[in-house]
Design a protein around this nucleic acid. Structure first.
Lengths: 245, 245
DNA sequence: CGGGCCGTTGACACAAATCAATGTCCGTGG
DNA sequence: CCACGGACATTGATTTGTGTCAACGGCCCG
């Protein structure tokens, strides 16, 4: 996969949520970009760093990290292929969170200057970008609910539901299976738990036919997971798979 | 205070973070708007409701609410005068969170149609709006860290720090005092705690010279609160009061 | 005077953290 | 080819922060 086909996917993502003209589509495909390969647990934007590019995830899983003073990490967002983890940096170039590759990743770095040209020339693109960052923000708001008001089992289940939907993981009857390239430590960091407790809780989820081994999530019965995770997909704003539940 | 002076404050807020031309400023002041008065604990946008206006807080405190299936509420954002709690509804009209007045409030309802005219005509205003929603999003991300990785005392302290900064509460020597029109129940809902535990924890904070009584927060020594709350103001993107810490 | 709403306090229960040991897998180098 | 180290995962024993339940007090307002 090269940078150009990456941009095609970027366009696909934007048009899934926003309407763009042919001219606007073409200008997006012409965006300059630099491909970067990242190793698992590699930080590529540090806290407080000023960047002059926004990135697009082609392959892999990216986490947005924050931490408290005692060094406990908290993931505040997960980004899968198709996402732009720091599109907001166009507007706010100084990072208030770090970015890290959780798995092996391929990303595209797109200069702010080029993105700014697009947004000033094409209001529809500006709106598409705004909308994209808004969806991310709505997901973060749900994470507050998840971490603030659900127990460990429910939290994990909710995250698995969210990721299954975002990956658009296919059903086989009532069951779902997908690759989630993050470790139990990452899960703990995302859910405000300890790795030890994640391990224990995953064991308890296994009794409900829900397992996660070697980065493969297997969900025996989707509705069971939805029930445990207290999941309502509306906030994802995708419309995909609607009617399935 | 009337609707017109409310718009002046709106403009002030926008120009504090973004640069606008005189023509753009004038068009903002000419925005049509409807004044609404709200009582404490009055819901004014319900979950899933479709609105055709965004609101601006002139006076009072507004909370964005979510809840899990067992009815436990979680506040995912607090909005003070100058904020637009649902500016994002311009882009995403169906609410994924409810809005509630926590105290007596006065808000301005501004039609989406009018806001859309502004954003398409003036890219700078579109950018200012985008930036405003981004700042909100960054605050939410910090709430995830707060709820996920801090204990009750630290959580409350962090919230008090945040609100002191956002209200731009004045110093008197090392101490700070400001009005925060929310109850302990609201605090609990914002921090993922129970009201009982909030009460106990506030008592323990009182030993550090930090009190909250009758909606008045008194902070004996700002640096003590910052220390307890593990607070780093960078995420607020305000620049105001910089150099104070 | 009475009834909400809000806050406080105490006894107790429990979910999750902590501490610590052990196991597994894998890549690397001797 | 085996030994080693490191990242990841599992398990048990114990502690602890916070939730739960319940009673009570203050205050405002009708």
């Amino acid at each position: 996969m090269n940078g150009q086909s990456g941009l095609h996917n970027f366009l696909k993502r934007l048009t899934a949520r926003s309407v763009l003209s042919d001219r606007e589509k073409r200008s997006i495909l012409q965006l300059p970009n630099r491909v970067a390969q990242l190793q698992p647990n590699q930080d590529f934007v540090d806290l407080g760093e000023k960047v002059d590019w926004a990135c697009y995830v082609v392959e892999g899983l990216v986490g947005r990290f924050d931490q408290n003073s005692s060094g406990d990490r908290q993931i505040t967002a997960l980004h899968i292929p198709g996402d732009m983890p720091n599109l907001h940096s166009v507007i706010q170039p100084t990072a208030t969170s770090a970015l890290q590759a959780l798995s092996q990743c391929m990303i595209l770095e797109i200069p702010h200057s080029a993105l700014r040209v697009l947004t000033t020339r094409h209001p529809a693109i500006a709106e598409a970008f705004w909308r994209d960052t808004m969806v991310d923000a709505m997901i973060v708001a749900q994470w507050v609910v998840n971490v603030g008001r659900r127990n460990a089992q429910s939290r994990i289940a909710h995250l698995l539901c969210e990721m299954a939907c975002r990956y658009n993981a296919p059903f086989v009857g009532r069951s779902v299976e997908f690759v989630l390239p993050m470790t139990q430590v990452h899960l703990a960091d995302a859910l405000g738990l300890t790795p030890v407790h994640v391990s224990r809780t995953l064991k308890s989820l296994a009794e409900h036919g829900i397992t996660m081994k070697h980065h493969i999530v297997r969900i025996g019965a989707w509705e069971t997971l939805v029930e445990i995770g207290d999941f309502d997909r509306d906030y994802l704003q995708d419309g995909i798979r609607s009617g399935k539940q």
